[in-house]
Write a protein that binds this DNA or RNA. Sequence first.
DNA 1: TGTACATCAGTGAACGCGCGTTCACTGATGTAC
DNA 2: TGTACATCAGTGAACGCGCGTTCACTGATGTAC
Lengths: 205, 205
Amino acid sequence: MSRCFVSARRQNVPEALLEAIGESIREHGASALSLRDVARRVGVSHAAPAHFFKNKAGMLSAFAAQGFRRLADVVEDELDRSKAVGGAQALASIGRAYVRFAVAEPSQFEVMFRLDVLDATSSELQEASDRAFSLLITTIEQCRQEGSLGDRDEMLVALAAWSIAHGLASLWISGQLEWRIAEANIETLASSVSQLFVDAVLGRD
Amino acid sequence: MSRCFVSARRQNVPEALLEAIGESIREHGASALSLRDVARRVGVSHAAPAHFFKNKAGMLSAFAAQGFRRLADVVEDELDRSKAVGGAQALASIGRAYVRFAVAEPSQFEVMFRLDVLDATSSELQEASDRAFSLLITTIEQCRQEGSLGDRDEMLVALAAWSIAHGLASLWISGQLEWRIAEANIETLASSVSQLFVDAVLGRD
DNA sequence: TGTACATCAGTGAACGCGCGTTCACTGATGTAC
DNA sequence: TGTACATCAGTGAACGCGCGTTCACTGATGTAC
């Protein structure tokens, strides 16, 4: 019996494993995640994940890195779409895209920021998160060049922008908002909060 | 041999167990937390935690509820101290206190927002988090009465304020900031970000 | 002052389980000659 | 066209372990009479 043939029909195994991590976390929570369950979902022996990712931390780091790459992709798309409208609106777009990604892939988003479970030395992970971060920095730089930053410190604005989007996404995912905020549509909330921030910090229009 | 006598000398056992949770998470991460390790730290049988908290989720919920109570205490103290200076500065104080609490007790802060590991039906937990949330709402209400809110929606400002403080705290704890932001003193960052937010959203002074 | 009883904090043994890692292996595929 | 060899994806059995929960129990304390 050829297992290789079966898995060739299925698809790239490491890729399928990463996909299964999301499923597993969605069903049983991040703290219950196990190599064996992930392997089971893909229909592969429980030793397979370690074969490709070295160990559990390695697998989760690959998953987190993929998350940062996806986040960067989503943000880039959004930036392309709002290229013409200036830095301030581009910043609002990033906020919206950030929250949209987090809410669409809460399991991945969660793992991306749980360093206790990751291999902190993974260069794949660092590169991926750097790429995402640099998109924010570039946009703030654009704001500065357009003069909408006033005398504010660039890094501080970047940090505030990241914080507000990250906080909104985290609070939503943790379930703290649904029963506290009447308008419980996260897309709308993300738009409103991003716009509030940009209007207030960078000046209206 | 009287175990009861020993533990009477030590102190209230449930309290000691809650304390030990923080220690354990600090050392091994939240995902490695076990009832048995917590019991070991207190010097009590591994069945003791279940005796007091029913099960693991119950124990963590009690820990999270304690966290919300502590957070509310810290925020209340800060509000008392800045009572005279008006709603805007009170709001900045809340932000600083929120981040200070989160950074001082990262293990507890983390558990407070990991609902996948908590007993969501715990009324102790809900009451504690409601109390903390209401402090924010009251302060925003004060801002509205002082007219510093302009035509902004109260709930939206509350959400934005919570998000920015929560995001900053989470990003710091996750280790994303230390090597990205040159000024890596979290107290200073929290002050600057809070002040930026309040100045921008509520108008300078 | 003494006895009987209820309460309850905490024990410790037992359960069955799923876990991560290791390792020698199989068998398919591609390449060199 | 055929053979020999290296590579590597994936297996499956075995390991030792720590876990959460259950349960009958002990023994100290407080209360009622």
